[in-house]
Design a protein around this nucleic acid. Structure first.
Length: 221
DNA sequence: GACCAGGCACATC
DNA sequence: GATGTGCATGGT
């Protein structure tokens, strides 16, 4: 197993960035829209999420107070294309409950919260687990929190960067413990990992020969 | 028609 | 604490 250093992680980052260019994540017009997208994209293709977001936008509902006033059946209908729509309607409502109770319909209010406290509060919301909480913290709120997902795990496993049984927290610590605490870096790093995962490090038929990370293999290190 | 997608909650052992 | 299962749509 290669020794995992800050230098190696930054080399991987640069290799992906050189090859793919900046990602421009997260595609959204407001922090609230990003948070909604983070909930809707759980185990779901982003294309389907875009349809649900477009429905909400068409009804001028990408705003906490108005979305909070929508009937559950109507919310289910609008987000139906994103799949798991009954679950996700409940989850969105739970998130809106949190915002209302925190007096944070204006998400800028959350700027006054310490990151660890806020993360725990998000994790207490039904439907928000580690990845969704961290996505909201990083992409919607600009906190330096490294987001881990299925692609991150797969890439790390394929490249022998960690034991196969590593969990979310270990995976996160692998990056966060070695990289400078920088939200912009974490943002782009995660986005690049997802793009590499989609493009090359697929479950079936991986395209390792042309992968931007092909030089970072266990055999080389 | 099977497989996959930027997870999570809940039940069970 | 680990493992299994339901949730649901749309693209490949």
């Amino acid at each position: 197993m290669p020794r995992l250093t800050t230098e190696l992680l930054l080399e991987m980052y640069q290799a992906m960035l050189d090859f793919l260019g900046p990602s421009g994540w997260w595609p959204a017009q407001s922090p609230f829209e990003m948070a909604v997208g983070a909930i809707l994209t759980q185990n779901t293709n982003w294309q389907n999420v875009e349809k649900a977001i477009a429905n909400l936008r068409d009804h001028d509902l990408l705003e906490p107070r108005r979305l909070d006033a929508v009937a559950p059946e109507e919310l289910e209908r609008l987000i139906q294309p994103s799949g798991f729509y009954r679950q996700k309607a409940r989850n969105l409502q739970a998130f809106l409950d949190f915002l209302r109770e925190a007096d944070a319909y204006d998400l800028a209010v959350l700027a006054g919260w310490e990151t660890g406290i806020l993360r725990n509060r998000l994790l207490a919301v039904r439907g928000i687990g580690p990845e969704t909480a961290d996505s909201i913290l990083l992409y919607a709120l600009g906190r330096p929190v490294f987001v881990v997902d299925a692609y991150t795990a797969r890439i790390c496993q394929r490249h022998g960067l960690l034991p196969e049984d590593a969990g979310y927290d270990e995976l996160q610590a692998l990056f966060a413990g070695r990289l400078p605490e920088n939200a912009a870096l974490y943002n782009e790093y995660h986005a690049l990992l997802v793009r590499v995962g989609k493009g090359w490090c697929r479950k079936k038929a991986p395209e390792c020969h042309s992968c931007p990370l092909r030089e970072f293999s266990p055999s080389r290190a």
